[in-house]
Amino acid sequence: MIPTLTTERLTLRAPAMSDFDAYADFRASERASFVGGPNTRMESWQQFCAIAGQWVVRGYGRWIAADRETDEPLGVVGLHHPLEWPEPEIGWSMFAAGEGRGLAYEAALGARDYAYRTLGWTTVVSLIDPQNERSMALGARMGCRADGVFQHPVFGPLHIWRHPSPSELAA
């Protein structure tokens, strides 16, 4: 049901129960502070289910970014679209084991390619906490430009980073 993508070093695949401990460890850590965390294990479980559940209710969603060789879960990347989001975004969260190797960039490029080529989207954004310097650097590396601010009712202001359109990427 959930499609699988491969990039040079990653498999983007459906979440599985065997990923949950790595996901819950991430959500419980300070690494999750820009994405609504840290969270309890039960909160993490609901969010983990929602990764799979959004595929059913939206028709698109996020993947577990897993090491292509070992299948170790390294992060969550893909097309994130909770109810209150102004539009769908490319979201990326790397676990500690997935950091520092350009894997978020690689996975996010795969997700953007999927959005444009497979789903036929003509635009997509990423919502980034203005304190999250690493994610802003990745947004810049992907060619995004500032396009306003979304006031989230719980998380506060999130900056809208708009990705280059399919035609801009082709040019």
Partner: peptide
């Protein structure tokens, strides 16, 4: 809703 839906495949 996403929780009860995602519980199925997991």
């Amino acid at each position: 809703f996403a929780h009860i839906t995602g519980h199925w495949p997991l």
